[in-house]
Design a protein around this nucleic acid. Structure first.
Lengths: 210, 210
DNA sequence: GTCTATACTTGGATAGAC
DNA sequence: GTCTATCCAAGTATAGAC
């Protein structure tokens, strides 16, 4: 409240510094991983002093979590806009393929995997990371539910369970693609899935409420 | 050759020391992760001096790779014995479920995930880790190929591609189960798959060459 | 809020005695 | 082959000046 009105030249930072640090932390996680994303490394990327990491975020992991937050929020928004324009299961798979490549190109999932791997051995980090994955699964469940509503598919495999599998598969495929530096196997799988989904759409579905 | 015959009391180690270190490295990877598996930590678990890590394996990562080697070999053998007794797709899925729980209980896949996550940012580690994953995928492909031979399934999704998906899914499910400390969603998926596989067996398959 | 300086810790790696 | 001792690098975190 008292901040908005007053002097501008001197207090030109704080919020900006925090943002720069979060941004730099994300970059560091993408480029040098969890282990390499030290306070010194991140601060240098942000062009600020190392001590500010602790002043603003308490600890390095605190900052890393903030970075994960941002990546999660960005990705969720992006996913929503991509999926909003889909009306059939086939289109949904197509959107997933786009997301997959985009995530590979920009190493978004790398950040996630790094944090998950690290959280495995940090009791205080694990719940935090788990919390940030939940939106992914809920979003997947919603998308699947909508695309298969009114068809027998939901009886064979409920959307919530399908979503769990989809998220796990997505993570695994990204890991393998990064590890082997080859996205072809994954893309080929998306194409298979697309064909099957199109077949599915032919029999059921495809009733948009315009 | 010259070693087997001679004195026993003094040279009682070397090979044993190496084995103890490899074993301890695996334990460390399971319990404290890649970052926590330092030369000092591992040496203490093995009950030997820290310097021996470098004498025998050149570097810590060298030792960690040796540990991954051992885990990979152990797991592959175990998988083979489990799958050997399966003749249908349903039984294959059942075996996979057993492996999944066993891997969760003993944190075998954790080791793998830690190494994959670390390899992402280590140009010399990446090919090594990738090399050690290949057997997994080949084994999965063989199993699937055999269980679906002579059926139209292979046309819809070739065994090699299915294997890629299975390995990715398996990795992802283990990661999520560890992260959320809840294996129920994954087990429920295995049960769904089992039901579908049983259905599949009813229509095709089930011709053992006894 | 931001910087400099510094205390403290941990870990990789090697030299040299045994 | 194994141990002790040690060097050096890098990292977290804090105190205190600006």
């Amino acid at each position: 409240m008292a901040k908005a009105g007053g002097r501008r030249t001197s207090s030109r930072s704080s919020e900006e510094t925090r943002a720069a640090l979060v941004r730099a932390a994300g970059e560091a996680l993408r480029e040098v991983g969890f282990a390499g994303a030290s306070a010194r490394d991140i601060a240098q990327r942000a062009g600020v002093n190392q001590a500010l990491v602790f002043y603003h975020f308490g600890s390095v992991t605190g900052l890393q979590l903030a970075a994960l937050d941002q990546v999660s929020a960005d990705r969720n928004e992006r996913y929503r806009t991509l999926v909003e324009n889909t009306g059939s299961l086939g289109e949904l798979v197509g959107a997933a393929r786009s997301m997959f490549e985009e995530d590979l190109d920009q190493h978004h999932v790398t950040v996630l995997v790094e944090m998950i791997a690290a959280a495995q051995f940090s009791p205080e980090l694990r719940p935090e990371v788990a919390e940030r994955i939940r939106p992914w699964r809920e979003f997947a469940a919603d998308s699947i539910r909508e695309a298969t509503s009114g068809s027998p598919a939901a009886r064979l495999l409920p959307p919530e369970e399908a979503a769990h599998a989809v998220v796990a598969l997505y993570l695994g495929l990204e890991m393998l693609a990064n590890l082997e530096d080859d996205r072809a196997p994954a893309l080929s799988l998306f194409d298979r899935a697309h064909r099957i989904a199109a077949l599915y759409d032919k029999f059921f579905g495809r009733r948009r409420r315009t």
